[in-house]
Simulated assay, not measured.
Amino acid sequence: MRAIQFSQYGGPEVLTLVSDAAEPTAGPGEVRIRVHATAVNPFDSKVRSGMMAAGKELTGSVMLGLEASGVVDQVGPDVTGTAVGDAVFGLGSATYAEYAVLRAWAPKPERLSFAEAAALAVGGETALRVLGLLALEPGQVLLVHGAAGGVGQAIVGLGIAAGLRVIGTASEANHDLLRELGAEPVTYGDGLVSGVGRLSHDVAGIADAAGTQMTDLLAIAGSPDRIVTIANYAARDAGVRFSGGGGDARGALQRVSELAAEGKVAVRVARAFDLTEVAAAHQLSESRRAGGKIVLTVT
């Protein structure tokens, strides 16, 4: 099958399209899909660059990708409620390929394209997990730091669907995007505390998807237990909760699918690249100027 691989750490140029990669097989509790689209996440660049290697040498080839959408073509043992031919989106590994195995999935909403659905799994699952930890009540104020990114957009959408008043930080270029999503925008960087203060002095919880300005976020929150971060490991030293996974991923994706079908949550696809353009997709991702999710179309 066609797939993207790399055999040495480095920049986007190390990514190579091969035509003879081994096809994966669905194991117990898994499904295999014929991939229509897969999303590019910041984590992919960290793996490719060697940031996650802890100094270890790379041996063999590595395939990237955490989420995808497509059509089920193989159902593993112990899987119920899903059949060959179902259109789904979900979480897996090595999804930059024609075929990929998903460990958690949900039906693709008919109103979404495969590209849009491919961009929904990581952000949607993460957003529900973070909001669950914050446990805010309808009417309370949620601040989303880094709201214009893929995960940030999902947190905004699900927060609003939960009845929260949402303030989102982003560059001024993305303020109109946040308004379209239903959030009140504020510019990050210098003046963040006063900027948020002009909108609300009663922020009940903060979802940090950017990993920056933790001192300011602590000042806004008033207490570290009001913050959950997915991007700042060091913040745990200050008592801030870090969430990097866990929980009922299949249940979360089912809920995301239902909300997306109702038009209550979506993630904007900033740009879709062909699989052959993976290096350009990674370059755009690393620029942090995409203003949404980046997708690779496969079929």
Rank of each mutant, 00 (worst) to 15 (best):
A135F: 06
Q140N: 03
I167S: 05
G163E: 06
W105Q: 08
A161S: 15
L102V: 09
R165P: 00
G168Y: 06
L112Q: 15
I167N: 04
A121G: 05
K108T: 05
H175T: 10
R103V: 10
L143M: 11
T187K: 13
G124E: 09
F114K: 00
A121E: 07
V122W: 01
G150N: 05
L136V: 14
G132F: 01
G85N: 11
L133D: 10
V156N: 11
F114C: 06
T187Q: 12
Y96W: 15
L177G: 10
G90Q: 01
L181I: 05
A148Y: 08
L91D: 04
G168I: 07
F114I: 05
A147S: 02
L120V: 09
E137H: 10
L91H: 09
E125M: 02
G163K: 00
E137W: 02
A118H: 14
F89P: 04
D86N: 14
G182P: 00
R179D: 11
L178Q: 10
L142W: 11
L181E: 03
K108F: 12
G159C: 08
G152Y: 02
V101S: 13
S113Y: 08
R111L: 15
A154P: 03
A127G: 03
L112E: 10
I167M: 07
S113M: 06
P109M: 06
D86P: 13
E110W: 09
L120Y: 13
D86H: 06
L128P: 11
P109H: 07
A161D: 15
L128K: 05
L178D: 13
A161E: 12
A148L: 05
K108G: 10
E116V: 03
A148N: 02
A147I: 07
G150S: 13
G159A: 08
L134I: 10
E116I: 00
A183I: 07
L91F: 08
V144T: 05
E137P: 14
A154S: 12
V88I: 13
S113I: 01
K108Y: 11
R129V: 00
F89N: 04
T95M: 08
L120D: 15
P138K: 03
R103L: 05
L133G: 12
A173H: 14
A173C: 06
N174I: 00
G92L: 04
A135D: 15
Q153T: 04
G163Q: 03
Y99Q: 15
A118K: 14
T95S: 12
P109D: 08
V122L: 10
T95P: 11
V151I: 13
G139F: 07
P138R: 01
V166L: 04
A119Q: 11
W105R: 08
V156S: 07
G157F: 01
E184D: 15
A170T: 08
A87W: 04
A173I: 11
V141S: 11
V166M: 02
L102C: 09
G90V: 14
A100I: 14
L181M: 10
F114R: 00
V122H: 04
L142G: 07
G85Q: 11
A97Y: 11
G85A: 12
L131Y: 03
R165Y: 11
G139Y: 05
V130H: 01
G163A: 01
E180Y: 02
G157P: 09
D176L: 12
G149F: 06
A161C: 11
L112P: 01
G152E: 01
V122E: 00
E125W: 01
E172K: 15
L158S: 06
G85E: 10
G123Y: 05
V166Q: 01
A97R: 14
V156Y: 13
I160Y: 06
A170H: 01
N174R: 13
L164N: 04
